[in-house]
Simulated assay, not measured.
Amino acid sequence: MVDRIGAVADYRYELLGHLLSGNLFVEPYLVTLLPGADPYVTFQHPGLKFLYFLSGEVTYRYGAKSVAVGAGDSLLFDATALHGIEAIQTQPVSYLSVVFTLRE
């Protein structure tokens, strides 16, 4: 379990590994929304983000787009856009989140 900068209450992050190779930094997390978790759509950070949903159903917003996703769905987007879970339809919610960042 790790505490992330900008983490939201009742969002649990488990760091699954990390890789720094040259200028590329990769951080894979297992994210689990605990029962008290609320929607939150103002995450924003450098890099690209890949999400793979393992359980639950949510509406996920990134930039101006809002999509319904559930187990087996994936998203890939520029993480500099505001993003996050806009609505929770079915719990429990868990997903893999992989952030790819270029180091300067």
Results as ranks from 00 to 15, higher is better:
Val2Ala: 10
Val2Asn: 08
Asp3Met: 09
Arg4Asp: 03
Arg4Ile: 14
Gly6Tyr: 11
Gly6Asp: 11
Ala7Tyr: 01
Val8Gly: 01
Val8Cys: 05
Asp10Phe: 13
Tyr11Ser: 01
Tyr13Glu: 05
Tyr13Ser: 11
Glu14Trp: 03
Leu16Asp: 06
Leu16Ser: 06
His18Val: 00
Leu19Phe: 12
Leu20Phe: 03
Leu20Ile: 11
Leu24Gly: 01
Leu24Met: 14
Phe25Arg: 15
Phe25Ser: 08
Val26Tyr: 08
Val26Phe: 08
Pro28Glu: 05
Pro28Lys: 02
Val31Met: 10
Val31Trp: 10
Val31Lys: 06
Thr32Pro: 05
Thr32Lys: 14
Leu34Ile: 06
Pro35Lys: 12
Pro35Tyr: 11
Pro35Trp: 09
Ala37Arg: 02
Asp38Ile: 07
Asp38Asn: 12
Asp38Trp: 01
Pro39Phe: 12
Pro39Val: 07
Tyr40Ala: 00
Val41Met: 12
Val41Pro: 01
Phe43Leu: 05
Phe43Ile: 02
Phe43Cys: 00
Gln44Val: 03
Gln44Met: 04
His45Gln: 11
His45Phe: 04
Pro46Val: 07
Gly47Val: 04
Leu48Gly: 00
Leu48Arg: 12
Phe50Asp: 04
Leu51Trp: 06
Tyr52His: 15
Phe53Leu: 07
Leu54Ser: 02
Ser55Cys: 02
Glu57Gly: 01
Glu57Phe: 01
Val58Tyr: 00
Thr59Ala: 10
Tyr60Phe: 15
Tyr62Glu: 03
Gly63Ile: 06
Gly63Val: 10
Ala64Asp: 15
Ala64Gly: 07
Lys65Ala: 10
Lys65Tyr: 10
Lys65Asp: 15
Ser66Trp: 00
Ser66Phe: 00
Ala68Gln: 14
Val69Ala: 02
Gly70Glu: 10
Gly70Phe: 01
Ala71Ser: 15
Ala71Leu: 08
Gly72Tyr: 11
Asp73Tyr: 11
Asp73Cys: 14
Leu75Ser: 04
Leu75Pro: 05
Leu76Met: 10
Leu76His: 11
Phe77Ala: 00
Phe77Gln: 02
Asp78Cys: 06
Asp78Glu: 09
Asp78Val: 07
Ala79Met: 02
Ala81Asn: 14
Ala81Asp: 11
His83Asn: 09
His83Gln: 04
Ile85Arg: 07
Ile85Gly: 02
Glu86Thr: 03
Ile88Arg: 06
Ile88Ser: 04
Ile88Phe: 08
Ile88Met: 06
Gln89Glu: 13
Pro92Thr: 06
Pro92Tyr: 09
Pro92Met: 05
Val93Cys: 04
Ser94Gln: 13
Ser94Asn: 03
Ser94Tyr: 08
Leu96Arg: 04
Ser97His: 01
Ser97Asn: 09
Ser97Lys: 05
Val98Asp: 07
Val98Trp: 09
Val99Phe: 08
Val99Glu: 01
Phe100Thr: 03
Thr101Pro: 00
Leu102Tyr: 12
Arg103Ile: 12
Arg103Glu: 12
